[in-house]
Design a protein around this nucleic acid. Structure first.
Lengths: 217, 217
DNA sequence: TAAATTTGTTAGGTTAATCTAACTTAATTA
DNA sequence: TAATTAAGTTAGATTAACCTAACAAATTTA
């Protein structure tokens, strides 16, 4: 049996390597991501290696094994299905779903998640626009432009966010932004990439960090 | 913060004292109920006492404090709401809901459970016929007859079960019984209370233990 | 390339939740 | 009521998941 904590380590490994585009993940990077000390992560990695869920040699980068990747993908699948449930059926707002889904993703019941998926009518994307892996499927990579890639004077539409923290999401809401909203790029400062955008007729200044976390088409 | 395990201890204490009709619960009884050794339960009880969730003196019976009872009731509320969700929305069968609800009941989010309750349209009873406590409410005692109380030659209707284990529930299903089914009591053995009952035209022999776990009207 | 910095590991310790084995107190029964 | 049995407790161990402090390896930079 696999514990909540182990599932979280595997999920973090998959997400980090997916986001960075590289196969291997470093111990410190992983630890920081999970909010634990490197020593703790190192201990856990040894246990995950014993269970044949990660490949990991002393002082080298960590990669998931096939088995580890499968579990991690399944956790992400559950997370995104639960987010969809909370958003569509329980009227949770867009920025509230993540934290509750962090808990729900660890419920162990294949039947539950399959039935939930059916109940939601097999959704392909979660409320943040991220793709939901199918049963036994893979996490698919999609080409995604961020607000940072949009030139001045152009109009685009927000489809998802990269950062799922509620701190960020609440900021997004404050700027008046939501899924499928149109964004007009008014201007951009060369020096620090500070942009002025217009959403529903209201102009706001946003930082580079903000812009690179907004996916658009 | 309260752990899953602590919640389970509190829930068991409430359920045992509720079922037995007595205020105090013994250490061994509690331990047996939770599938742990008395020594383990004893350790935990000390911790729960430190947190002011139980009243407990050496060699004496255990009782819940107001705070402890409140948490326990809330866990039972969550459990029963989740059971209702699984049964009504996800097409789980009657005997499958319990085990998954055991996990779901520990999800920490007031908003989640309130929204779930609304989504289910404020149900008063779970799929086993047990009453669902309202928000901040109490576990209500209902007078309940069991199949054991029905005299020979009388017809009754099953409304709930006492034992929620899937072993028992699967047995119930095998006998052809379900919620709201009519039961006719054909005969009863004086010696061991073995009864012959008829459900939907099919006769079966059931033990005393079986009969006392079936609630009827 | 040698020094400095970053990254990763080890050793030893803590807490929650479990156990076994030995013991004590309470309750039952002869 | 004394002896037996049942119920409850304590002591000492274990495992998972975390920590700090000290150390080692790898990488970067001067």
């Amino acid at each position: 049996m696999i514990s909540f904590t182990e599932e979280n380590y595997l999920k973090a490994l998959l997400r980090i390597s997916f986001d960075s585009g590289e196969t291997g993940v470093g111990t410190n990077e992983l630890a920081m991501n999970l909010g634990v000390k490197p020593a703790t992560a190192n201990d856990m990695l040894k246990r995950l290696r014993d269970k044949a869920l990660v490949d990991f040699e002393k002082y080298k980068k960590i990669t998931l094994t096939i088995a580890g990747k499968k579990i991690a993908t399944e956790v992400i699948r559950k997370h995104r299905l639960w987010e969809t449930f909370l958003y569509e059926k329980l009227e949770f707002s867009w920025d509230e779903v993540h934290d509750v889904a962090e808990q729900l993703e660890h419920i162990q019941s294949t039947k539950l998640i399959d039935k939930l998926e059916k109940f939601l009518d097999y959704p392909a994307f979660d409320p943040h626009g991220d793709p939901i892996p199918s049963k036994g499927g893979e996490l698919t990579k999609q080409f995604r432009k961020t607000l940072l890639d949009i030139p001045v004077g152009q109009l685009c539409k927000m489809v998802a966010v990269k950062d799922n923290s509620s701190a960020f999401l609440q900021y997004v809401v404050k700027v008046g932004l939501g899924i499928n909203n149109e964004i007009y790029v008014q201007s951009r400062q060369e020096y620090d990439a500070l942009m002025v955008i217009e959403v529903n007729g209201v102009a706001s200044s946003v930082s580079e960090k903000f812009a690179e976390n907004i996916y658009v088409v």
